[in-house]
Nucleic acid binder design. Structure first.
Length: 137
DNA sequence: GCCAACGTTGGC
DNA sequence: GCCAACGTTGGC
């Protein structure tokens, strides 16, 4: 099973919002980048995804899972982009900050560090394990 | 098809 | 609020 990381600005859509969306989850729209789209399309049902707060917090705060495969985003006039549905699984007991990730030599190659602008990113199994340990889950 | 100009993102 | 990095757009 693959792992991913998605980013959201908490003043637009926060972890709290995601939790309040409940079991039904919510669509993850607004991606307008071809690289990010590729990753969205590669997601499988049940894939686990880190939920990262950009700008404010700058930390991984929780885990969501993919509950609906890639489908067209009706808000995209070009019809080229799409989205998946995700639902909250659990929060990290201790959020893992960008600072902590940068400080850990094992996590230095994460795309979060290398390409901070990409809004949907793959996470390797090893990176996933390390962040989970640091996050207390 | 190249590349300069512009807009957006996100860390600082 | 600034600016670097990156993607996209549009003139040629």
């Amino acid at each position: 099973m693959a792992h991913w990381l998605i980013k959201s600005e908490p003043n637009k859509w926060s972890w709290r919002d995601q939790v309040e969306a409940g079991e039904k989850g919510t669509f993850w729209n607004g991606v307008r980048n071809h690289t990010a789209k590729q990753y969205l399309m590669a997601m499988q049902l049940g894939d686990q995804v880190f939920f990262y707060h950009s700008n404010e917090g700058k930390e991984i705060v929780g885990i969501v899972e993919v509950i609906k495969l890639f489908y067209p985003d009706p808000s995209d006039p070009s019809g080229k982009f799409g989205m998946v549905d995700v639902r909250a699984v659990k929060p990290l007991k201790r959020p893992v900050t960008l600072e902590a990730i940068k400080a850990d030599p094992r996590l230095k190659d994460m795309m979060l560090v290398k390409n901070s602008r990409l809004s949907v990113q793959p996470v390797t199994d090893e990176e996933w394990k390390i962040v989970c340990e640091e996050g207390g889950v």
